[in-house]
Design a binder for these strands. Structure first.
Lengths: 220, 220
DNA sequence: CCAGAATGCGAGCGACCACTCGTGTTTGTC
DNA sequence: GACAAACACGAGTGGTCGCTCGCATTCTGG
């Protein structure tokens, strides 16, 4: 069998088709964002995009594929964002700065793409997307673990993992609070995430050289 | 119209009926827990309880009412649990102790009733339950705010609220991690929640009298 | 300019699900 | 034992939703 071990030959697309796909994904993002994945109906997505249900199925084989495609594009963008945000950290940089930069980037991404949180955090996401989310989550945990290990080379790996999970959990909890706010209040919550993470992590990494960690409010 | 301004006269129940209700709620808890509210079918709940769908509707007017009843019973139990856990706090008690006791109680409750987290945290819960959840959440926030205020009488209320939200968020994030673990690992995560909360809150309440907060590793 | 492909439409199909109803069984009461 | 009310059943009903299909329209290569 010489041709086509591919599961799908990427059927030829015209410019109009590409535009429709983008239009449909945008509409899907909007609908998923407000109603969640399961509650979102494909007819609603088509209506939001201003096309007929039949047209939608011209470009996506089924409802799940819409979420998959959307998720993949978001994860791709996310990889770029977190690649910059968590990849190279000089152990000499102060904790405040490292945490602040990482949080700012991730928060910015999630504020730009609120669908991401909705899709990746809903309990009703289709199986294929869950895998994608788990993979991303595992990568993130791995990065944080690596960072922590570089600060605490002697700590048992179970402790490192637990700390990484907790740190990511704190960030996620804060993200949820941030997304529910706007303007100045939102900024204040972003700062609060940084406070929480720094206070959580500093006693660990601050001790690595006998350094007394964060400067506390002096006795004055 | 002399009689019945009630929306429902609580029709007379036999002992058998009470048993069925309990049986159905237990089955519903199990199904909600594994599939979430929306994905759970009333037929599945009836099957899990070993009765016919018709029987289920003998005791509940609709699917939402099942979740409502389940939620109300849980919230009722919860009120008792948190009443003990957060109500009276002597400002002299050390932070570790207060946080530890509160966390232990709430964790124990959620481990005993995993449905609670599933029902109250799913994005797909029916409107009526959301109100219930919001009310509970508001009460909890209020309690934490009151506690914080007693430690920090001079702090602006916006800061207090933000800190309370963040503290609750940290707890929730930890709870999710805890529920996904078992045995010794679970205990370690419970401890980690306490660590996170103490480190987050101590710099605030530790300063209330010029006390230098948690003893850090001394400069030696 | 003209085949043929890509795009677009929307009524409709099949499956699923919350919920009902007619009928039969058990239980409490006199 | 008799009567009514509570309980139990499960096939059926109406509605929703994912998805299809036949057909019309627009685009592209030759």
């Amino acid at each position: 069998m010489p041709e086509n071990a591919q599961k799908e030959q990427p059927r030829r697309r015209q410019a109009r088709g590409e535009r429709r796909v983008a239009q449909l994904l945008e509409a899907a993002a909007s609908v998923f964002c407000t109603t969640g994945y399961t509650a979102a109906s494909t007819n609603a997505i088509a209506r939001e995009a201003g096309v007929s249900p039949g047209t939608l199925y011209q470009f996506f084989p089924n409802k799940e594929a819409i979420a998959i495609e959307l998720g993949e594009r978001l994860v791709h963008e996310m990889r770029e964002a977190y690649g910059e945000a968590l990849a190279p950290v000089d152990p000499a940089t102060p904790l405040e700065q490292a945490v602040g930069a990482a949080v700012d980037r991730f928060i910015a991404f999630n504020c730009d793409h609120p669908v991401f949180f909705a899709l990746m955090h809903g309990p009703d996401v289709p199986g294929r997307l869950t895998e994608e989310h788990d993979a991303l989550h595992a990568t993130l945990i791995g990065r944080v673990e690596a960072l922590l290990s570089s600060f605490l080379p002697d700590a048992p790996s179970a402790d490192i993992t637990r700390t990484a999970q907790m740190a990511l959990g704190i960030y996620m909890a804060g993200l949820e609070l941030v997304l529910a706010r706007e303007g100045a209040e939102r900024d204040a919550y972003v700062q609060e995430i940084k406070n929480a993470l720094i206070r959580y992590l500093d006693p660990l990494v601050g001790d690595r050289l006998g350094r007394p960690g964060l400067t506390r409010t002096p006795p004055r």
